[in-house]
Simulated scan of single mutants.
Amino acid sequence: MSGKDYIPKPSAVTSARNRLDKYDWETLAGEMNGYGCAVLPGILTQKECADLAALYPREEHFRSHIHMARHGFGKGEYRYYKYPLPDLIGGLRTALYPHLADIANGWNERLGGDQLYPKEHADFLRQCHEAGQVRPTPLLLQYVPGDFNCLHQDLYGDLAFPIQVAFLLSEPGRDFTGGEFVLTEQRPRMQSRAEVVPMRQGDAVAFAVHNRPVRGTKGDYRVTLRHGVSRVRSGMRHTVGIIFHDAR
């Protein structure tokens, strides 16, 4: 796969960077460090949400179609985008990465790891592709009444970026009910902690994929995280997930 297949248009990246400039990244980093997740409110417009959701039946944009029940993932379905990604998704994936890489590198340092994530997403993707992880991982999910997503981790190979971002494309209470985003932490020798993240249409949540450090009385220790979606009770729920590593 050549670079032109996964590097988005410069104009899309510039637009995404301008959009992200309005957020207080120091505060968001504090929330990530404290709770393992942080909400970016209103990152997408209502029209952008509708346009992205409308892509779901258009197979030309996707490389595969997954029915969760067939694999024991829950109930519902999703499609993985293929390269080149839609401009909005590709631009946000590239522009979000440097902000999140700073947090990820801080986590690795606190946990004594030797992984250093490069400053630019294209450089990290190059590492993925050299390791044989060449399939794009951003995805579009669709839930109808009774659907849910089991607690899981999105790990697709030896290289895995520790943070991902989910964008809610539907409006709770209007387009669907139920379907809350849930994050759990398994702490050593302690019971699990659950975090239910309230979101509106156009909001995004950045969250830990696998592990994160937590400060204890004797220094930092590692907690394991999983995320999922509770049962949708009515309507239809669409979400875009941006995962920063590619898959084997």
Rank of each mutant, 00 (worst) to 15 (best):
I89C: 04
R174V: 12
Q127F: 09
D154C: 00
L141A: 11
A69Y: 13
E120M: 14
Y78F: 14
N149M: 04
Y143A: 09
L88V: 14
V165S: 01
Y80V: 11
L183N: 03
Q191F: 01
G132W: 11
F62G: 02
R126E: 14
G157L: 04
E120N: 15
Q164D: 03
D147G: 06
N108F: 05
V196W: 05
D175I: 02
L111H: 08
Y156Q: 07
F148V: 07
L159W: 08
L92T: 06
R126P: 00
Y80W: 13
D158H: 12
D147A: 07
G112N: 10
L151T: 06
T177V: 06
I89F: 04
V182H: 04
I89T: 09
F161T: 05
E130H: 11
P162N: 03
L139H: 11
L168H: 02
Q127V: 13
Q186P: 00
G173S: 08
H65A: 15
Q153K: 07
G112H: 09
P188L: 00
A194L: 00
F73Q: 15
K82P: 00
G157Q: 07
L168M: 10
K75E: 14
K119M: 15
W107K: 09
F148R: 11
A160S: 13
G91D: 09
Q153R: 15
L183G: 02
K119V: 15
F181A: 02
G90S: 07
T177C: 07
H71A: 13
L151Q: 04
A104G: 09
H152P: 08
F148I: 04
A69L: 13
F167E: 03
A160R: 05
G76A: 14
A101H: 11
D147K: 09
E195L: 03
R110C: 08
G113K: 15
Y78P: 08
R79L: 12
E130G: 13
E60L: 08
L88S: 08
M190C: 07
D154F: 00
P136R: 10
P136H: 09
G90H: 08
D87C: 05
K119F: 13
A160N: 13
G112S: 11
L159D: 08
G74Y: 14
L151R: 05
I163H: 02
Q115Y: 12
Y156G: 07
Q164V: 01
F176Q: 04
N108P: 10
D158V: 10
Y83V: 05
Y97Q: 13
G132E: 12
C128Q: 09
H65L: 14
L183F: 03
E130C: 07
E60M: 09
E77H: 13
R70L: 14
M199N: 00
P162V: 01
G90P: 03
L151D: 06
F176A: 06
N108S: 12
G106T: 06
E171C: 01
L183W: 02
H71V: 11
G173H: 04
F161Y: 05
Q164R: 02
N105I: 13
A160Y: 08
R79W: 11
P145L: 08
R126L: 11
G113Y: 14
R126N: 14
F167N: 02
E180I: 03
V196P: 00
F181K: 03
D158K: 12
Q142W: 04
A69T: 12
Q164L: 01
R70T: 15
V165D: 02
V196A: 07
W107M: 07
L92H: 04
H99G: 10
L159N: 07
A122K: 10
F124K: 05
Q191H: 07
